[in-house]
Design a protein around this nucleic acid. Structure first.
Lengths: 207, 207
DNA sequence: TTCGAGTCTGAAACTTGTTCTAGATTAGCG
DNA sequence: CGCTAATCTAGAACAAGTTTCAGACTCGAA
């Protein structure tokens, strides 16, 4: 019987300090290469070299290029969530608040379009083997949107549906922008359009 | 000066009969392999062999695997459009008609999930070099949705925005379904949810 | 029919993601 | 300290998308 090599689970705190450091270096190298040239520029050999790690080790930490880039996205989204938490949107209406929040995130993407390319392409290309990780990203996104809505109580089923659709639109709009088939202005319109669903699903408010 | 090899443009009718036949054989082999095992099963060498064409020739007709699969999607979508044209949705309300139409398309995808996988993954992974082809697919999809709405006159700007968002949702919902992160029921809900935007953007109708 | 440009074939080569292996290193433990 | 299992390294090897090239073939025009 062979000993199944147990891959280090990033979320579990079972990592040595050195291992945690390696993981950071890898993610940093990944983001850096992505910033330069997008998805294609993130080459596994180069990530390994730039982070001072053997190729085999890189694959032990992240079992594929897609896993690596999705993890990179988790990282970035986490930072964004904190930033947004510190400065919540200023608008009054929930729909506007969500739209404003997403546009802020979009502006962040515009600052590093290559990085955005790498992360979004990985996210939509991911197959079932990456589902758990992609799901984490999805939950993070949901959390950001729900935060922006600033609900009093827990969201209704209708509201959760609306949030799902908003997420769909967000991802797909990013894809069309990154592939040069939609302008920044068009993405803005799409976001604002889908956010109207929030009004539609607001619980009856007596006027 | 070298003669730039002019790739055959599929839409232009400048193809020999034999060339047209080759193109068909290639697309057929592509769809067939895709049906078996999805994106990964469509291997260029095998497509070439199965369609009785040299690898170099395959690349002359379709400059990349992504191009090939997007063309395959154009093909399939075209057939779907015809099918739908013959039997338009039976529901009364525009929103319902669109939802019904998309659910029909979705059911077609469920019949060949591997093919759907190959086509959708290619579509969302496509980079700028495939923009024209992806755009064709997008226009086809738009046409299908607008047909389903069954408008009297030309759509308003608001309605076009709604259609865009519906398309976004459609694509992204497919991606989540294919990657096993959303159930069929969930996709149905998402489609129905986004279709509510159609009511919202209907021109004022005096009651 | 014959010519020339453009096309197709077959096969090798190249690129990059991924896997594998043998040996060096490290971490935790008695 | 000294041992053992797990981890890490270097590098070769493999897989599939893509490119390249020399030679054979096809098509349209003269």
């Amino acid at each position: 019987m062979t000993t199944e090599p147990k891959p280090p689970t990033p979320s579990s705190p079972l990592l040595t300090e050195r291992q945690e450091a390696r993981r950071r270096r890898i993610l940093h190298a990944s983001a850096q290469l992505a910033c330069r040239g997008g998805f294609d520029a993130v080459q596994m050999r180069e990530v390994a070299e730039n982070s001072g790690v053997a190729l085999g080790t890189l694959y032990r930490y992240f079992p594929s290029k897609i896993h690596l880039l999705v993890a990179t996205m988790q990282d970035q989204l986490g930072q964004m969530h904190e930033t947004l938490r510190k400065r919540p949107p200023v608008t009054a209406e929930p729909a506007d608040r969500v739209a404003e929040t997403l546009m802020r995130a979009f502006r962040a993407m515009q600052r590093e379009p290559h990085l955005a390319d790498a992360m979004v392409r990985a996210l939509t290309f991911a197959d079932r083997s990456v589902s758990p990780e992609v799901d984490t990203v999805s939950r993070l996104t949901t959390a950001i949107i729900l935060d922006a809505m600033g609900l009093d109580g827990p969201p209704t089923a209708d509201q959760l549906s609306a949030v799902r659709v908003i997420e769909h639109t967000w991802h797909s709009a990013l894809v069309t922008w990154l592939s040069g088939r939609a302008s920044i202005a068009q993405v803005k319109i799409d976001i604002e359009t889908v956010c109207r669903l929030i009004d539609l699903t607001a619980p009856e408010r007596r006027g």
